[in-house]
Computed example of a mutant assay.
Amino acid sequence: MQRDSETDNPMNPSQAHDTAYDRTPEHDQMVVEVYEYIKMRGLPYRPVYTPAGGGHQEYENSWVECEKMYVGRRTFFADIGVVKWSNHKGGRLTPSKYSHHLILEIKPKIYSVGAVIRQVKAQQHLINGWCEALGDRGGLGSTTSWGKAAPVLAANDPLLDLFSRAVEHGFTYFVWDGVKLVKPSAATFVPLDPETGEVFEHGEAA
């Protein structure tokens, strides 16, 4: 679970520990399984960016991290953070001009559909603010960053169908069945890659 600090300073190590020490073993196991899967197989999600010359282009570089920490005006964690960045040069403090930051919230069990939706929308607000601050640090026009927050839900969760009916068109979420990570068709992305049939999403899309 992601928790954040209200202060301008990063939480201390003990505080960071205490935000997660009461997790269930099932949660930790699912985090590690999804993390290992993404490292080995990647995501069923291919964000693109639009360089100055126009046209969509996939990010050339990728990094995945378990328990990724985001430090800024508010400090927060992602169960899993996936960073993608381009080879286009940015500013002195932000070497890449274009980057995409996906934070995944792992949910082995849905206790409340509304609670999960609210949490992810609050996470979206946090990562949007973090990306905006990243651009400010890089200098005017030097960096363009996008953020995305999404839950990962268990395929056998009895509330999964209700969740899929409750979220609005374009809400991003993934489903884990213990072997494969999939993106349900209800979370619609456009356009399709004409060669592979896979789906692209522009990083700027909400």
Rank of each mutant, 00 (worst) to 15 (best):
R3T: 10
S5K: 04
T7E: 05
T7D: 09
D8V: 07
P10D: 12
M11W: 11
M11E: 09
P13I: 13
A16G: 02
H17E: 07
D22N: 14
R23V: 00
R23W: 09
P25E: 02
E26S: 02
E26G: 00
H27W: 00
H27A: 01
Q29D: 03
V32W: 05
V32R: 00
V34M: 02
Y35T: 07
E36P: 02
K39H: 05
K39Q: 05
R41M: 01
L43P: 01
P44A: 00
R46K: 12
P47F: 03
Y49K: 04
P51E: 01
G53N: 10
G54L: 07
G54P: 07
G54H: 05
Q57M: 09
E58C: 09
Y59E: 02
E60V: 08
S62V: 14
W63Q: 14
V64Q: 13
E67A: 01
E67H: 08
K68C: 14
M69E: 07
M69T: 11
Y70T: 12
V71C: 03
F76E: 01
A78T: 06
I80T: 08
I80F: 01
G81E: 06
W85F: 15
R92A: 06
R92D: 05
L93E: 08
L93N: 09
T94D: 14
S96Y: 11
K97I: 02
Y98K: 09
H100L: 03
H100Y: 13
H101T: 09
H101E: 13
H101P: 04
L102Q: 10
L104M: 07
I106S: 03
I106F: 00
K107S: 02
P108Y: 02
P108R: 06
Y111P: 02
S112C: 11
S112H: 14
S112T: 11
R118H: 10
Q119A: 12
V120Y: 10
K121P: 04
I127F: 11
C131Q: 02
C131W: 01
E132A: 13
L134D: 07
L134N: 09
D136F: 13
D136T: 06
D136W: 14
G138T: 13
G138F: 13
L140N: 08
G141D: 12
T143L: 11
S145D: 11
G147Q: 06
K148Y: 04
A149I: 03
L160Q: 12
L160K: 06
D161A: 15
D161R: 11
L162D: 14
L162R: 13
L162E: 12
S164Q: 11
R165I: 03
A166V: 01
E168W: 07
E168V: 07
D177L: 10
D177H: 12
G178W: 07
V179D: 10
K180Y: 08
K183R: 15
K183Q: 11
K183G: 00
A186V: 15
A187R: 04
A187L: 07
T188S: 12
T188E: 13
V190F: 12
P191R: 14
D193M: 06
D193Y: 13
D193G: 10
E195L: 15
E198N: 15
V199K: 15
E201A: 10
E204G: 15
A205Y: 10
A206S: 14
